[in-house]
Write a protein that binds this DNA or RNA. Structure first.
Lengths: 263, 263
DNA sequence: CGACGTGTTGATAGCTTTCAATGGGTGTGG
DNA sequence: CCACACCCATTGAAAGCTATCAACACGTCG
């Protein structure tokens, strides 16, 4: 894809500006286009903090802990802005799920330019706030929710993001594997698979192939997410599984996953 | 404490500005001072998004999930700026750990004012980025680390925040209870207690009373946190406990806790 | 001194992980 | 077009880490 076209799309969708303005002319020289294949990561400017604009495709933001452990912090899709630290407690990488096109900026220069314009500042601040709040929600999910709640929340979050909703049902084409869902939810691939099986047995979802999932009963699914303040189903405290494949436990809350805007 | 004095301190420490400037005169009218006792929460402007400046004391940022479940997303101390959403998937509250003094702003007006000044924008953006990155680190901890790793990381993070370091040892006076540590790490009070006992038995820490902890061996403690890229001790894969009170497992990483600046 | 909240310790149960085997889906090459 | 890897997903059995339940110790406060 053409670099100028992508940059133009970036300016419009992010700041509602046309090229030619001061912001556009300042950011243009530091924007670097990159297109990567599934499984790959951008190596552009990886030695410093970056801001990445997702022009096309989907990526996962992965943090590497010790050993082989990897946590997916967020998923990102077209239009998202991602803040990536170069160093820190963990190593973070944006890895493509599908063929992905992105614009990479050095963070310091990017934010210096943004700060000079009130409108752009306001928009970036709002994106950062949104990313922070979503990350907090994810924290709650990982700290307080059990497996069925996490998977239910994940499915609902994905549905809100890119599901075709029709009459209480909703079908999704998940761009990520079970392994990636597990890495995002802090669960193993087997546990994710079991929860999906449980949801299917409950008649709440149906599956087709490995990535096609249809949400048949959004209400019940929401009940399994356990939003705060909600009744939490018919349980209150110390709710546990019932039998072999189990029913559910309580219900925690939802939407810890996507990554919406700036993350 | 005097409202004007607190506001002045806020302007200086956050933006390096003196009152009288445009920013100060714009923010002054919307700043509301509040002092609350331990266990209490501010009710000022709780119907809308807020930004809270912590002038004095310590608070915990609590998210309520369904049932009785509560997750502490971050701890905040004097000088911190906290972004608080009014609505969302969960209900968030800033609850005082000690007697706390704070300045409360309505978020939208606050950020509108900030965005108009380049310097202030840059600083706020940097704080938001920091908060986001710390929150991500916490996500990794909750998603990938086991109990001993979480507690070790927590202690190290607290030590970095307000510990008197001297010759590989460091003593802390924790302002939070075991219950709050557990709520922050996604663990129960009993598990936290057991990990502390384990660390004491390993000679890595010593305790005195219920809140005084001395870190005797920062190196070993760090090894239990499992930072990425590190050797992870002498383990690689599938590292498990050894015996009754167990040794350790692998080692994950650290510092998911504090909350540093804007969270 | 007794009540109460906090913290510690022990025993048990449970949810998730680990280990292992099978089946399904996709892609490549003959 | 089909065969054959190869990866992904599902399912089962067993083990493990943490939660739950319970009892006790400690310090504070009335």
């Amino acid at each position: 894809m053409d670099s100028s076209t992508v940059f133009q799309t970036f300016l419009r969708s992010t700041f509602g500006q046309d090229p030619g303005g001061t912001l556009g002319s300042q950011l243009r020289p530091i924007a670097k286009l990159d297109t990567i294949a599934p499984g790959d990561t951008t190596r552009i400017g990886s030695d410093q903090d970056r801001v990445i604009y997702m022009a096309r495709g989907a990526t996962k933001l992965v943090a590497s802990a010790s050993g082989e452990r990897e946590q997916i912090v967020a998923f990102h899709f077209a239009g998202d802005l991602v803040s990536m630290p170069a160093q820190g407690i963990h190593r973070y990488r944006a890895i493509a799920l599908t063929k992905a096109t992105m614009l990479v900026f050095p963070a310091s220069t990017f934010f210096d330019c943004i700060a000079k314009e009130a409108d752009a500042s306001r928009l970036v601040i709002e994106r950062l706030r949104g990313a922070l709040h979503r990350c907090r929600d994810k924290t709650v999910a990982l700290g307080q929710k059990n497996a069925i709640e996490r998977v239910s929340s994940f499915l609902l979050a994905m549905a809100e993001r890119f599901g075709g909703t029709e009459l209480n049902t909703c079908s999704l084409e998940l761009p990520m594997s079970r392994r990636e869902i597990g890495a995002s939810l802090g669960l193993t691939i087997e546990t994710v698979s079991r929860q999906i099986t449980t949801l299917r047995n409950l008649g709440i979802i149906s599956t087709e192939g490995r990535s096609q999932i249809t949400l048949l009963d959004l209400e019940k699914l929401t009940g399994l997410c356990g939003r705060s303040g909600g009744s939490g189903g018919q349980f209150r405290k110390k709710p546990k599984f019932d039998s072999d494949q189990g029913r559910l436990r309580s219900a925690g809350l939802a939407a810890e996953t996507t990554g919406g805007k700036l993350s």
